[in-house]
Design a protein around this nucleic acid. Structure first.
Length: 823
RNA sequence: GGGGAAAUGGCGGAACGGCAGACGCAGCCGCCUCAAAAGCGGCCGGGGCAACUCGUGUGGGUUCAAAUCCCACUUUCCCCACCA
């Protein structure tokens, strides 16, 4: 059938041909400028829907446009293949995680190809394969050597459902990011990466990441959460011990009427030795009641509570003796795990003091005010100090400096910067992950596995029950010999957080089969940094922060050069709803790739996803909407297909003769669309919705064009495939080859927009009187101000509005507008 | 509580400070057809016969000119949140 585009017989053969001819393979030794663009690698969960497609189609349109602009484009794809769902499949259905993962990868690779994407599949990686995760282990060992990977016992987030610990970043509203169960608190010995060593650099460099969305940078700043303060020691009355407090408001120190410490704080044990057994019992009862409570429960959900320990501390500045409490709202893991209680100037301390009848002493007054009645609410702003010895009368700002100097001079403290950001907890008590390459020996202790013994392979056929660590129960895996002394020893049974793999995969794409190193420096120097990274906004802190941390470490080691940031520009695409609802299996409203490829075609799907909204917005998939793009493709087909033979002889690389206004308008429409596609990539706005709208206008112009044998029309026929190639690659190559071209359209250059073609015959001059539009008059482009004004004054309607008044001012915007101000 | 982004017809959206609503979807009217589908043509923010006029969340401001810039507010979405 000639009047419609039979996508079923066209799309798949083209995909096969592109793959066979390897047209998207990227060689590094290429004189063209490099462009590295990638989308966040998917987790192989099984099936893709149009929401995933939006991500890949956007990235593909960018990669294709850059290729047609003459760049050597690197556009790779891989699989974030370790993780819990594979273990859950093993538990629920008895399938081996490796088998489950491999078959999902195969299906999803097929689906991603089905989308007509232009990846270099020779660089494909899967993080669960030994030739990838061996370098995970290698990188872990390098971090370990530099003291950046370490093991310690700490209160950690424990998910009782997934039976594993979680990083702080993986606890969302007190719940496990994967399964949604309430997270508990447990004291466990775990592996951490010392991300906090890089906190300042991670924070600082955000200011210069201007290719990143502002919201992402802000979110990372908030997550790192720098606060500047003073850490200083308070003596404990009757005990040869002291407790360190951290405060950002040392200007309020004279108002401290108690101190509060976390129940887990080590000093509590000392305190217990000097207080009555009644107090000891109360402290222990209180600590017990909080033991397994999550941070969220303790901080947000519970009322501020505490118990008096029976001991007192001495305020080093006022020399006052204040009671020591243990309190639920003090976090052992932040600052020093102990805070001064200043009820007059802190919300939490105020509530606590009210509850336990503690004095409220005001030491800050608002600027320009005097002390008034007792405070009804805490005053938490800066102000002027009162009742603070020599510091009375100072501003908060000055007092903070003076008091910091004072405690330093007294030898009891110093200024200090604290971060909300904690070290990254990377060990997991799960099976389907990278084994941590450490061996425990009775004689030698913790021993790193030597590089030549890597990879430590994940053993097959390990029973997975969901209870406890599977590797810990496998004697063949666990029992080994010490690399240092040769005695019997056992392996670490924990595996790595899967975010470890995804923190450096963009480097492995560059050199994916290297067996000597994770990547070669020279290759990284050529390709890095990633010019454009595309992915969901849900990775704002986790993956993107960890990747930045890794990259800074690599940079310090000299393994990468240039700027110490991996992703130069970042773009978050919005998600896709179906009829305004979130797609989910349980709702049964998932639009799958296979089904839409079959009913509407891949080109129509791609066009719809790019057209329906700007890419950063949430899109709404509708059956009517996709039909609109199917119609568009049919119109393209009907406008071109009957004229392909005739169009062969009209070059798409030279402007055709343009004799009539209609011909000029048609050729102009070609160049307007060409310019739009290039501009959207150059500006990194990627609003291809406007480009496709211009293509709609071009095709509308072709449809209504009378003389289909004119060179201008045939020029449009010959250039249209080049214009739509980044968005609808199949129909583009089909039309191109039917015009007699033997190589793929995707190896062609863009249609370069030409000023001569973009020029218009006539402009509409808007004439305003006092800012209101009173006439629209046709004029020749480039008309001068005097001439334009004369023309405007000839208009009867304009005359009517200025009648009898004098012109006070005139504004002329060339080729656009005349504004006459009268009065 | 803190921070960020946004608000334009029935819907998705377009608009370097310069013609608001491009383009599409839905709808309506025609043509084609025995009929339907497909396709093609036209209409499509409100009021008004018209000249005109009102209109981009609300209220101010800057400007010859504001959807666009500034201030305040309302609402929505997102992120963080007892961080001392």
């Amino acid at each position: 059938m000639a009047d419609s585009y039979d996508f079923r017989s066209i799309e798949r053969p083209w995909q096969e041909r592109w793959e066979r001819d390897g047209i998207y393979r990227t060689a590094p030794d290429d004189a063209r400028p490099k462009y590295y663009t990638m989308e966040m690698l998917p987790y192989p969960s099984g099936d893709l829907h149009v929401g995933h497609a939006k991500n890949y189609v956007l990235g593909d349109a960018i990669a294709r446009t850059m290729r047609m602009l003459g760049y050597n484009v690197l556009h790779p794809m891989g699989w974030d293949a370790f993780g819990l769902p594979a273990e859950n499949a093993a538990i629920q259905r008895g399938i081996d995680p490796a088998t489950w993962t491999t078959s999902n990868i195969e299906n999803m690779r097929r689906q991603i190809r089905l989308m007509g994407t232009s990846y270099d599949w020779t660089r494909e990686i899967a993080t669960c394969l030994p030739d990838y995760y061996r370098w995970n282990q290698w990188l872990f060992l390098r971090l370990y050597e530099h003291g950046l990977a370490y093991k310690r016992e700490a209160p950690v987030n424990w998910c009782p459902h997934d039976q594993t610990v979680l990083a702080n970043e993986q606890v969302i509203d007190g719940r496990c990011w994967r399964c949604g169960h309430m997270v508990e608190r447990r004291n466990l010995s775990q592996w951490f990466l010392k991300t906090t060593d890089f906190a300042e650099r991670l924070l600082h460099e955000l200011d210069r990441l201007d290719g990143w969305p502002e919201r992402t940078r802000t979110a990372q700043r908030n997550w790192i959460g720098r606060s500047d303060g003073v850490e200083f020691a308070w003596a404990i009355d009757g005990l040869d011990a002291h407790v360190e407090l951290f405060t950002t408001r040392i200007d309020t120190v004279y108002g401290a009427t108690f101190i509060a410490i976390a129940p887990e704080h080590p000093v509590v044990e000392h305190i217990k030795t000097i207080v009555s057994s009644k107090h000891v019992a109360e402290i222990e009862r209180f600590a017990e009641s909080l033991r397994s409570k999550s941070e969220l429960e303790r901080t947000s959900l519970m009322e501020k509570e505490g118990v008096f320990t029976g001991a007192y501390a001495i305020n080093p500045l006022s020399r006052e003796r204040v009671p020591i409490f243990v309190a639920n709202y003090v976090l052992a893991e932040y600052g020093t795990g102990a805070v001064g209680g200043v009820p007059a100037h802190d919300e939490r301390d105020f509530l606590f003091a009210k509850k336990y009848g503690l004095p409220i002493v005001q030491v800050i007054v608002p600027p320009g005010e005097e002390v008034t009645a007792p405070l009804e609410a805490p005053y938490c702003e800066d102000g002027r100090l009162i009742a603070s010895d020599d510091y009375s009368g100072m501003s908060s700002e000055h007092a903070r400096i003076a008091l910091a100097e004072r405690v330093a001079a007294m030898g009891i403290g110093q200024t200090r910067i604290n971060y909300r950001f904690r070290d990254w907890l990377v060990s997991r008590q799960r099976y389907w992950g990278t084994p941590i390459p450490i061996i425990y020996c009775e004689r030698c202790g913790e021993v790193a596995v030597p590089d030549d013994q890597l990879p430590i392979l994940l053993p097959p056929d390990v029973p997975i029950t969901g209870e406890g660590s599977p590797l810990a129960r496998d004697p063949v895996f666990i029992n080994t010999t010490c690399p240092a002394c040769g005695e019997a020893a056992r392996r670490e049974s924990d595996t790595m957080d899967t975010f470890f793999e995804s923190s450096w995969y963009y480097l492995r794409y560059l050199d994916p089969r290297n067996v000597h190193a994770p990547w070669e420096r020279g290759i990284a120097k050529h390709w890095m940094n990633v010019d454009q990274y595309i992915g969901g906004a849900e990775h704002t802190v986790l993956h993107l922060l960890y990747s930045r941390f890794f990259y800074k470490f690599f940079h310090d080691q000299g393994w990468v050069s240039g700027r110490d940031e991996p992703f130069e520009r970042l773009f978050h695409q919005g998600m896709v709803l179906y009829n305004s609802e979130k797609m989910s299996k349980s709702r049964g409203n998932v639009i799958g790739i296979d089904e839409t490829a079959d009913t509407n075609g891949v080109d129509a799907m791609r066009l719809f996803l790019l057209y329906v909204t700007p890419p950063e917005d949430t899109s709404n998939w509708t059956d009517e909407g996709i039909s609109g793009r199917v119609r568009f493709l049919n119109r393209v087909w009907r406008a071109c297909e009957p004229h392909l033979e005739a169009a062969r002889s009209v070059s798409p690389r030279a402007l055709p003769p343009m004799e009539t206004p209609e011909e000029r308008a048609l050729v102009r429409a070609v160049h307007v669309a060409a310019k739009s596609g290039i501009d959207e990539v150059a500006s990194r706005r990627f609003h291809f919705n406007t480009t496709i709208a211009k293509l709609d206008e071009l095709v509308n112009a072709m449809t209504t064009f009378a003389n289909t044998t004119s060179p201008a029309y045939l020029y449009a026929v010959h250039t249209l495939p080049l214009l739509i190639a980044p968005y609808a690659p199949h129909i583009a190559d089909e039309l191109w080859s039917r015009m007699g071209h033997t190589s793929s359209i995707h190896l062609e250059r863009v249609v370069e927009p030409e000023d001569q073609a973009l020029a218009v015959d006539e402009i509409t001059l808007v004439v305003q009187v006092n800012g209101k539009i009173r006439a629209r008059i046709g004029a020749t482009p480039g008309i001068g101000e005097t001439e334009a004004l004369e023309l405007a004054l000839l208009d009867p309607n304009v005359q009517a509005y200025i009648d009898g008044k004098s012109i006070r001012k005139q504004v002329y915007v060339p080729d656009k507008l005349v504004n006459l101000v009268v009065g």
